[in-house]
């Protein structure tokens, strides 16, 4: 037997985790954000159950502010995988017209944190897969693969269950739920290499292309829907064509673009390896509340 490579070991581990959840949870769901990590996680789920389709639906907690290319890929991947796609919009956020420009962090709270809680409660899911990785952020480095949430979706970092060997304890009381992170042990480079090795479809926004951009509060953003932008900003920002790509994908007004010429997967990987700023820097969310931003958000129920 040849020795397993690091990607083969990671893949086998993730598949084992995904199957454990399918076997032990009452009603699992896979959170699908359409980013590259979600793409890898979905691919692993398809591998775990082949020739069956994964025995759980995909859930997209949508903010209505995602890039158009993300909605396109989302629908295509749901069809390809044979999985049911559930899309949830927080009705309150919709009604109040919450948007990233006027409402700052409230946008994330309402659409994503609240939206996620509402969606999980609405469908009664007791286990939700997420594509977070431990190398992304400090508080995630200590989070378990099976991470418990109280009935109000809070996370208690001081009271985590020990995880030994590959034995996961999925027992929980009524009302409690689990977030499961099957690609916890993958790094950003692992994810890219695996996408390359397995030809996994990802949103074209990861690749550089000439796109309409505007500057806002010191960052470079893509003008994905200029009419809507004008409506929310109250003015039409100056739009210039630039060759840009995204290192991470979220809501288009919250996700900073980088100027780049990397238009193929290998070029993107090359740029990633040579770059000196970390992945989440383009996202505004981690900067709240000093170094503990993500930890606080997680305690409140953010994924």
């Amino acid at each position: 037997m040849k020795k397993l490579t690091h990607l083969e070991r990671l893949e086998a581990e993730s598949i084992q985790i995904i199957r454990e959840v399918a076997a032990e949870a009452d009603k699992p769901v896979m959170l699908y954000s359409v980013g590259k990590d979600s793409a890898v996680m979905l691919h692993l789920a398809r591998k775990a159950f082949y020739p069956s389709p994964p025995p759980f639906p995909l859930l997209h907690v949508d903010t209505t502010w995602k890039f158009k290319a993300m909605y396109d890929l989302r629908d295509k991947m749901a069809e390809m995988s044979g999985m049911e796609l559930l899309v949830y919009n927080n009705p309150e956020a919709k009604e109040k017209g919450i948007n990233p420009f006027d409402h700052g962090s409230l946008h994330t709270d309402m659409w994503k944190t609240e939206g996620l809680k509402q969606a999980l409660d609405k469908y009664g899911f007791d286990a939700a897969f997420g594509g977070a990785r431990r190398d992304e952020e400090k508080s995630r480095a200590k989070e378990r693969i099976f991470s418990f949430r109280t009935s109000s979706h809070g996370w208690d970092p001081k009271n985590q269950r020990p995880e030994l060997w590959n034995l996961y304890n999925a027992k929980k009381a009524r009302g409690e739920s689990i977030r499961v992170f099957p690609i916890s042990n993958w790094t950003e480079l692992d994810v890219w290499q695996y996408i390359r090795l397995e030809n996994i479809p990802i949103v074209p926004l990861y690749f550089a292309e000439k796109r309409p951009t505007f500057e806002w509060e010191g960052g470079l953003f893509m003008a994905d829907d200029p009419e809507r932008l004008e409506k929310v900003l109250g003015y039409m920002p100056e739009i210039t064509e630039k060759s840009i790509r995204f290192r991470t994908l979220g809501c288009f007004p919250l996700t900073g673009a980088v100027e780049s010429e990397a238009s193929t997967l290998t070029e993107v990987i090359q740029e990633t390896l040579l770059t000196t700023t970390s992945e989440r820097q383009g996202r505004v969310i981690d900067k709240d509340a000093g170094g503990a931003g993500m930890e606080v958000k997680k305690q409140q129920g953010y994924f």
């Binding site: 480095a141 200590k142 985590q160």
Partner: peptide, 27 residues
Amino acid sequence: GLAAEREQGITIDVAYRFFNTEKRKFI
């Protein structure tokens, strides 16, 4: 990692870290 322990100055839990060399990936 976690805010509470940063203040206490001790590591209180298992944290997982990653790095690569030419030959291996390390966890």
